[in-house]
Design a protein around this nucleic acid. Structure first.
Length: 672
DNA sequence: CAGTGAGCGAGCTTCCGCTTGACTT
């Protein structure tokens, strides 16, 4: 009997069916050994080591301590027994950095020695698998070194910087290469929103009475363009390089009265072609974004539903960064399109999509229907599962369909000294949009009639409305997963976990499906930015990835790299870091955020208090700050309070007149 | 003397990435 070890049980079942008797195909369920965490029993030689808790001997070539993972004890036991009786063992973990490491750890645990047989393949077909097991190679120790470098760096950074927060902030805080970089991106967006000064301007719209009628807006007066939202800076000033005029209420009113009696002449018509390509097949981040935008599912919900579809054999593996379709899948997708929309819906050649992400490891295919491409209505699914499966199905089919083709028309009309503009899009060939439209519903454009220069039309229904320039928007979970992927922060298997960590630590909170940074999150981010800027720099991970590539190709030594990053950069910064509690200025309300005992508080004019849970930076307006400091603030959402279990005490606290709102943690919050 | 509360000190917290059941509430 020959033993083949892969990572996932679903894969194991599939491959077992190809290889048949004479083979045992088993799953190791991911990593089997890791650096120790609290509660792990260490090998005797490390029991009393000074670095036992860190798990890395920094002064001895960054040698890691590896222990078998407790959650894999049974798996390891089973694999050991099978390996003992097998005539040969093949290590077929995924073909990427982490997979190579898993193969090596397995070879150590199973006592396979240096000549352990490593097997990789790019797709799961019988031919590819048979070819792979016929030509095993040895383990690539450069690639293993690259993974070990990544693992050690993350441990050193995480366990090195987190204690700074315990001392400076208090409470069970955490920092790390991924979570802190992600927090920083969110905090920067929140800060630019806090600093943003909105500008008001007026916009006048009017109906042009052609057949059919269409709507136009006043775009210029006496040939001087009017200000739009894009004309203002973040501080509320008109961009100086633009020569634009700003409508006020009075002028807007005059314009409305004037336009209602006017006729407009078409001055210019520009028609340009529009070609929209279908979106690529789904990756982990693409699924998060699409399910969030189209189905309003949260990140954790998408993962749970997708996992269920994967286990039911309906879709392929759900943690991937590749939009690639196998030849077989492409054929099935094209057949499904032809059946439903006719052969003309397909371009001559199948469409293959390249990843845009240079850090992608591409160990898996795109997320697509597995097997025979069961149509959604025949899947036997219902509810949210059906909705998510339909999304995967439609996106896969759409990726193979023709472009949507049409034209965009821009029209300029003149009424006296007033210039009007309108635009419209017409799709002549719907292409993939017949199945899947990725356009935002709000962006839908009107259809314009055929127009010639010199045409005259009466105007009707002029209306003025006041508009405000708006700050950069917050992220939904789905959008932010895409932001993380683009920045190279985290991996498909961790995007969701990172969002959960940030929320569990109460650095980030979801409100109306938007990610908000909490006051505590703002304080932590600004502290890290000041004390260990290297860690939170968005470039750090991207640079790390290219250095790991050098290590994987043998061009850079693992110790040399870790010396540069740890001894040369992070460790000195950690030693030099100030351990004073961070502060965050809120100039718009003349107050300062502070933190005591892990709880964010507000200080103004020498008075201070702990912020009640659930208060977000955007809530801290002048009246709220005043109410908070005078004790008249009422918490927005009725949340389950830990004091509810002790009714006598809670009642007593409520009767006392000048009690500050109680923080939910043990220690007392910020004071004056 | 029992109960309360201020004040003090000891002990604790943590990373990222790979993969699913086996647990409890």
């Amino acid at each position: 009997m020959k033993l083949l070890i892969v990572e996932s049980p679903a894969k194991a079942r599939k491959i077992q069916s190809y290889l048949g008797s004479g083979w045992q195909v088993r799953a190791c369920l991911g990593h089997v050994r890791d650096l120790p965490t609290k509660g792990d029993t260490l090998p005797d030689k490390y029991k009393d080591a000074s670095f036992a808790q860190l798990g890395v001997d920094v002064n001895n070539n960054y040698t890691p301590i590896y222990v078998a993972r407790k959650d894999k004890a049974q798996t390891i036991k089973d694999l050991k027994a099978l390996a003992k009786s097998a005539e040969a063992v093949y290590l077929a973990a995924d073909p990427d950095r982490e997979g190579e490491s898993i193969a090596w750890h397995l070879s150590v645990l199973l006592g396979l020695g240096k000549d352990a047989q490593r097997v990789t393949y790019q797709e799961i077909t019988e031919r590819a698998i048979r070819q792979a097991v016929a030509s095993p190679r040895t383990i690539d120790f450069h690639l293993v070194a690259a993974q070990e470098t990544r693992r050690v760096l993350d441990r050193l950074a995480g366990y090195g910087v987190s204690p700074l927060l315990w001392k400076a902030v208090g409470g069970p805080q955490s920092a790390g290469r991924v979570q802190s970089a992600a927090l920083m991106l969110l905090a920067q967006r929140e800060q630019s929103r806090l600093r943003f000064v909105p500008s008001a301007f007026w916009r006048v719209g009017v109906m042009v009475e052609s057949q059919p009628p269409f709507s136009a807006v006043v775009s210029a007066l006496k040939d001087i363009p009017l200000a739009t939202a894009a004309s203002f800076t973040a501080t509320g000033a008109l961009k100086s390089e633009l020569n634009v005029a700003q409508l006020d209420a009075e002028k807007a009113k005059q314009l409305v009265a004037y336009l209602d009696r006017q006729q407009a002449v078409v001055r210019d018509v520009t028609v340009s072609p529009v070609v929209r390509r279908p979106p690529p097949p789904l990756t982990t981040s693409g699924l998060q974004q699409a399910a969030n935008a189209k189905l309003k599912f949260g990140a954790a919900q998408v993962t749970k539903l997708a996992q269920a579809l994967y286990e039911a054999g309906l879709i392929t593996y759900i943690r991937t960064d590749s939009p690639h379709l196998s030849d077989e899948a492409m054929t099935l997708a094209r057949e499904a399109v032809a059946t439903r929309f006719g052969p003309d819906a397909l371009p001559r050649e199948g469409r293959q999509y390249a990843t845009r992400n240079k850090d992608a490891q591409e160990a898996h295919e795109a997320i697509r229907p597995a097997g025979k491409f069961v149509a959604p209505e025949q899947s036997g699914l219902s509810g949210d599962e059906l909705a998510l499966y339909r999304l995967v199905y439609d996106r896969t089919l759409a990726s193979q369909m023709r472009d949507a083709v049409g034209s965009k028309t821009a029209v300029t009309l003149q009424a006296g000294q007033v210039t009007l503009s309108a635009s419209g899009v017409v799709l002549n060939e719907k292409g993939f949009t017949a199945l899947y439209d990725d356009q935002d519903k709000n962006d839908e454009e009107q259809r314009l009639p055929a127009l010639k220069i010199g045409d005259r039309f009466p105007l009707k229904d002029a209306k003025a409305e006041e508009k405000k320039s708006s700050p950069p928007g917050r992220f939904t979970e789905g959008k932010f997963v895409q932001v993380m992927e683009k920045a190279g922060i985290g991996r498909p298997s961790t995007y969701g976990a990172t969002l959960e960590t940030l929320q569990r630590r109460q650095y980030v909170a979801l409100k109306n499906r938007q990610l908000h940074v909490t006051p505590l999150g703002l304080l932590i981010a600004s502290y890290l930015m000041k004390q260990v800027p290297q860690l939170v720099n968005a470039e750090f991970t991207a640079q790390m990835e290219s250095d790991l590539d050098l290590i994987a190709s043998g061009k850079l030594g693992r110790v040399a790299y870790l010396d540069r990053i740890w001894k040369g950069t992070l460790d000195p910064a950690i030693h030099a870091a100030q351990l004073t509690a961070p502060r965050f200025e809120l100039p718009h309300v003349g107050a300062v955020l502070e933190v005591r005992g892990g709880v964010a508080g507000l200080v103004k004019d020498g008075k201070g208090l702990a912020l009640p849970e659930g208060v977000l930076p955007e809530d801290l307006t002048e009246p709220v700050v005043t109410a908070l400091l005078s004790g008249t603030f009422k918490a927005p959402a009725a949340q389950k309070s830990p004091t509810a279990k002790r009714p006598a005490k809670a009642a007593k606290a409520a009767k006392e007149p000048k009690t500050t709102p109680a923080p939910r943690r043990k220690r007392k919050g910020a004071g004056a």
